[in-house]
Every structure is written in structure tokens, then in C-alpha cells.
Amino acid sequence: MGKETEEIRKIKPGRPDWFWFLFPSLLLIVLFFFLPIVITLIISGTNMSSTTGFHAWKWVGLNNFRKIAILPETADHFWLTVKYVAVTLAFFNIGMALVVSIITTHISRGTGFFFRALWLLPRITPTVTYVMMWKFLGANAPYGVFNQLIIQPLGLAPQNWVAASSFLFIVLVNGYIGASFGMIIFTSAIEAIPKDITIASLVDGASMLQRIRYVILPYIKWPLLFVTTYQTLSLMTSFEQIMVLTDGQFNTEVWSLWAYHKALQNYWGNFQWGFGNALAAVLVVVGIILGIIYLRYFKFNELVQDPKIESL
């Protein structure tokens, strides 16, 4: 047996090569994505709370989920979340993002860049500062900007607009941040449409709306899929803006905020970790199901099919 064969044998580890290749990212995914889900599911099967502490808790099986199912407020939180996610997604994270990216790619480059930079401001402003600005915009007299500048000069009765139109406010607050994400992705996708295709469609006689319908939207189908999926899931699970704006008052307690309040911050000081985790687990399951539906609906398989090499 030659010495080289011996060497080769030494190099060959016990585990297959791909394992070590993937190990760093696998570790990250398992540690920070997969394990938290497992822990969530485990705790959701217990009655763990600040009363029981970490020692005196008991397994309660699916009791927490049964409780969710029979609680009268469940339906309210659920439909509010559906409405909030759907409206914010449709009008801002997708709708406004599309409008802004189409407009800013069809005006001069510099102007387009300027307006896109403006839209990024809410995202780079610290959340608390940003939400406080909204609060003061809608606040009751004598502080509210809206009341001072528009309502009172018109002789109308000032009020706390955050409370009066709470749903509108949580949509606006999240939408103005959320739109910039889609805007960036759609803009680069629209700018990647070959110039000849645009010229061809103009020569073929397409109006602006027809170009959007028949050329731009089909071309940015995959970015649309990505932004829709990603933004649905982040809208479902993020609650910090709403927490700072209303803390769930005025009928704005979306599901994720509800879970947070139950598990980590409630009025009586009893943190119901078990129940809160059960609420979070519902979000995880709904998120996975929605993700699968999106991928199916947008025919994700086509995106990853083998490339076709042109034969002359």
C-alpha cells in the first residue's frame, strides 16, 4: 500500500465533508431559529408563570391551546391581526412600495433617488422617536399638531386622534416603515428590466398602466413573492411600534402583542409564560402554513428550475 493512500485515508473524517461545510450556519440556525421554536412549543405545554417559578410548574398538555380556543377575546385579537396584516401589506408594504418604486424609476435618476431616500427616513429613525412623532401628530389639544394646525383653525372639536382612529394609526405607523423594504427591492428589480423590453413595449403601444400590468409586474414576480412572504411574517410577529404607540389600548392588541403582554408584561404582575408561549406557537404554525401557501401560489418551483442554456 502506497504512502499516498494512507494520507488520503487520514484526511477522510468520520463525518461527510458537507457536514463541516454547513456546520457554522447550521449551528446558527439550530441555536437561534430552531431551538427557540422547540422551547416555545415545550413551554406552551406547561402552566409555567411567575407564580409557579421555574420549579413548581406542571405539564398541562394542550390546556393552554384549549384556553385560547374558548377565550371570548381570542376572536377579536385574531381578526384584528388579520385585518392589520392584510391592510398594511396591501396598502403599504406592497402597494405603496410598488407605487413609489414605479414612480421613482420613471422620473430623473437624481429626483428618484431623493424621494426613495426620504422614504427610508422612518426606517432609520429610532423606533421610539418615530412613534413619538406620530403620537404628537395625533395627540389631543393642546399638543397635537393635527389638532392645532387643521382641526382648531377649522373650528372643529379637537380630540385624541390616536385613540379615535387607532386602527388607521397602527397601519400608518407600520406602513410607512414597511413600504421602504419593498421599495428598495422593487426598485432594483424594475431597473433590471432590460431597456430594450421597455422600448419594445412602448413601440408596441403600451400605456403606462398596460406596461405595469403586462411587463413590469410579470418581470418582478419573484421579488413580489419574496416581499409578500417576508412582510406578512414580519407584520404578524412585530409589535414594538404598536406597543409604543398604544400599548394595545383602543382595540389595537394584535396577536403578537397579546402574547407579549401575557408572557412578559401584564398588569397584575403574573407573567403567564406557558400561555404566552402557546399564543406564540399559534403564530409560528400560522406563519409556516402561510409560507407554504405563498410558495405554492407563486409557483416557487419554477424559480429554482434548471437554467436553460441557449442553443443556436
Binding site: P194, D196, G205, Y214, P218, Y219, K221
Partner: peptide
């Protein structure tokens, strides 16, 4: 505007709409 000029145009890159069939490309205008 281009659509009012009675012109047809052919490009180096062909510039066919990739998401449409040949028939749809032909009858697009």
C-alpha cells in the same frame, strides 16, 4: 409618442417578453 408613429422595431437582444408565449408576443400590440 412611439405608438403613434406607425413603426415596428427589431432589437439585437430580440427583446421578446419572456413571460409570454410566441403567440402572445406576436399579438401583444
Amino acid at each position: 409618442p412611439p405608438k403613434d408613429r406607425d413603426i415596428g422595431m427589431v432589437f439585437q437582444s430580440y427583446a421578446l417578453y419572456p413571460h409570454m408565449t410566441v403567440y402572445q408576443n406576436l399579438v401583444f400590440s
